[in-house]
Design a protein around this nucleic acid. Sequence first.
DNA 1: CTGCAGGGGTAAA
DNA 2: TTTACCCCTGCA
Length: 292
Amino acid sequence: MKITYDHEDLVVTLSEIADFDVEQIFTCGQCFRWLPLTETCYRGVVFGTVVDVEQVDSSTINIRRITKEFFETYLYDYFDFDCNYSRIKEILIQNDKVMQEAVSEGRGIRILNQAPFETLLSFIISGNNNIPRIMKAIDALSRNYGTFIESINGTEYYSFPTPEQLIDVTIEDFRSMGVGYRDKYLYHAVQGIVSGDIPLEAMGTYEDFALRKALLAIKGVGPKIADCIILFAFKRKYAFPVDTWVKKIMKAYYVKEDTKDKDILTYADQRFGQYAGIAQQYLFYYSRKNKL
DNA sequence: CTGCAGGGGTAAA
DNA sequence: TTTACCCCTGCA
């Protein structure tokens, strides 16, 4: 990958880049604040900044509205550039026809390393919910309690609120954001984090088992959502979130129909090992795209 | 147009 | 192991 900076126009250009497909990265269910601006360009709010990511061609990406410093400080890690996806794909597709198919359809997927607090609240909202409504609720939370960033062509952009910005938000207030019965879970999470009962940031240093246990102790966080947070916020690539789509494709090709979720996890660990989370993304994208 | 199942799970019984 | 749960969309 080659990185060039246009300081004048605030454009960072990534060229000679493999494994980066804007559409696949932002629509594979891992994030909820990126919207298509055009056919090839998505706009999102990350780390308090409005960012445009444009796919110029299969090996060239323009990232706009950001400085070199912002890219190096936040986006390099956010887009997981330390991870060699080509190498991992090679390993995953060995002796696996299904994975070969899934990887060929989602070859440009990357895991986004996201902020723990935003990830926790977003995925609590995501439980038994659909993507448009999840996005709407997160947008409402940001508009009502986040920090105003800027206005572009009449659209106002806000950062995702911090725990402190949400400390006085009541259960009823959360309900009015369109989160439904998850209102009390969000309230509990915010209060716990501010009081220190849920040491979310510090949980990044927990060992694997302790981290999952601590996440499962948060109301509204079950196995699937815990594994999403472990994968997307705590950068642990072994985590394998089992949702309905992954369940469908696993039962269609890898395990028996009556396999319990827990045993799907065990199977994924044995088959995909430390890269199970990346395998999950290819399988999820493939399963959903082909409406299995 | 009205009615109803179902959705990127979880808590509680 | 089963069931209710917000509420919006899709479809009969």
